[in-house]
């Protein structure tokens, strides 16, 4: 009986979410295209890249360094049993370039910048700042939302490239000086198994997709938040949760599409 009620409910929920998705897509496209609007400002864009990208750098570098070191350790103990430690460089590099780099960058970005973005836009809405802009004949999508979306989309791949590099360096530091893997083999194996377009660029393409998704969700949740203190709080939490889950789900789809 409960099952019978559950099925139509699921259907109804799904149907209800379709117009929401449509509205969110229109929001994304209108905002992205408003770079051509006269109220779009590159100064604002730079300000946001500074806020999202530059100020996330230290977080990313620290996280990448530890991730790389852990990969080095775990990889070593898994491979040493088969006498295959020569493949450690490949293992560290491929794990980071294909999966851990893009996914961890996106998750950290959702927590660090995505939440701040949702909180900022939703509190601007709650205090009528967006309506005030509208009344002053300034399009809030062009002035507020577009620079933030573009800043996220530009920042995430850059952060991901830095994450990959620092992570591989962390893996090297553990593997070669600490665990005694031969340095030449570490790099040579990595170089002969990593391809530029297949692994490095594909990983960065993933990061780009995640950048779009995370900032899109964050901005949309902020823009549609209920204009109360509670609404701002809810939207911020929901933004991080939704963005993180979407990144993981999308990662599965992209991996299946790009690496098969």
């Amino acid at each position: 009986m409960a099952m019978l009620e559950f099925i139509p409910q699921l259907g109804r929920r799904t149907l209800q979410s379709i117009p929401g998705l449509g509205a969110a897509s229109r929001f994304l496209l209108t905002s992205l295209l408003s770079v051509f609007n006269r109220h779009f400002s590159f100064q604002q864009l730079f300000r946001q890249i500074y806020g999202f990208g530059v100020r996330s750098l230290i977080l990313m570098v620290v996280a990448a360094f530890f991730t790389g070191m852990v990969l080095g350790f775990q990889g070593y103990y898994a491979l040493v049993r088969f006498g295959a430690t020569s493949a450690l460089g490949t293992l560290v590099a491929l794990s980071l370039l294909r999966e851990l780099g893009p996914v961890l960058t996106a998750l950290l970005f959702a927590g660090r910048a995505g939440s701040a973005l949702t909180a900022e836009i939703s509190s601007m809405k709650a205090t009528e700042q967006l309506s005030a802009m509208e009344m002053m004949a300034v399009n809030p999508l062009a002035w507020v939302v577009a620079p933030r979306l573009w800043a996220g989309i530009i920042s995430v791949p850059i952060l991901c490239a830095i994450f990959d590099l620092v992570g591989i360096f962390g893996g090297y530091l553990i593997s070669v000086p600490v665990l005694g893997v031969d340095g030449g083999t570490f790099w040579a194996q990595m170089q002969s198994n990593v391809t530029f377009s297949g692994d490095i660029l594909t990983g960065l393409f993933k990061a780009l997709c995640f950048g779009v998704v995370v900032t899109w969700i964050a901005a949309w949740k902020g823009y549609t938040a209920r204009p109360t203190a509670e609404g701002v709080g809810n939207a911020t939490t929901l933004s991080v949760v939704t963005a993180s889950l979407t990144v993981l789900g999308l990662d599965f789809i992209l991996t299946a599409l790009l690496f098969s």
Binding site: F46, I158, L159, A161, T195
Partner: peptide, 28 residues
């Protein structure tokens, strides 16, 4: 504004440098 422009410039350069190093050192 000037300081922000500098930092953003450095940030973008860092990203490009990371990509170049990845391409040459890791991806060969």
């Amino acid at each position: 504004t000037r300081a922000i422009d500098w930092w953003v410039g450095i940030f973008v350069l860092l990203g490009i440098a990371a990509l170049v190093v990845l391409a040459l050192r890791v991806g060969n």
